[in-house]
Amino acid sequence: MLELRLVQGSLLKKVLDAMRELVNDANFDCSATGFSLQAMDSSHVALVALLLRSEGFEHYRCDRNLSMGMNLNNMSKMLRCAGNDDIITIKADDGTDSVTFMFESPNQDKIADFEMKLMDIDSEHLGIPDAEYQAIVRMPSSEFARICKDLSSIGDTVVISVTKEGVKFSTAGDIGTANIVCRQNKTVDKPEEATIIEMQEPVSLTFALRYLNSFTKATPLSDTVTISLSSELPVVVEYKIAEMGYIRYYLAPKIEE
């Protein structure tokens, strides 16, 4: 038996919006640790890892580990029927082939339940080793989204370079080239507006902008984003979900042939 009650139901809607452009079907894994997901996009270029820790739920009951295969677009269709202030409870019985989403309005005058069919999804979990990154950039998530959107109107790929000077995002296309440099800036009114660069050594990697733009669908989940870079490793783009966990995106770099 599984019963997860999330007071901030809108958070689950945002989580779905952050994943469904990238992933069609995925297994949600439920354990004592929390509600999690790991899935690759259909071309196996990007991977998304979600964790919503059990402590972040108002009520969390998961009698045994359970993996529930869901179509994310269908799940999103159901969650869109919840009000933004609604409390969402996810329920499933052992051995059933469906999951129920219950929506309660804040003053309890409206209660709805939506039952969704589960699906069998073959997916293998990948081991993501802990790595030391050559550079870690933390910046406002809205700024990162703006840069990815702006550059994708010029080119298809971005070179992200971190040096002592800052982090540089560069692209080139048929109409011309673009470079955006963000310097470290800790002297801001609010900490979430800061750009912080921790660099062990300079690093420069090339990525497809299409995927980075998909990652920025997570922007409503967090004011800041952390970009971890190392040569010969996928970039990690992480959005922390306050008091709950994170959504992390891994993107394999492009290399010169």
């Binding site: 071309s43 270029v45 990007a46 990948l126 081991g127 993501i128 497809a208 891994y250």
Partner: peptide, 14 residues
Amino acid sequence: KPKQQVISRFFAPK
């Protein structure tokens, strides 16, 4: 033109 790599090149199945 740079070639896109896949995730499985970096992360192995558990």
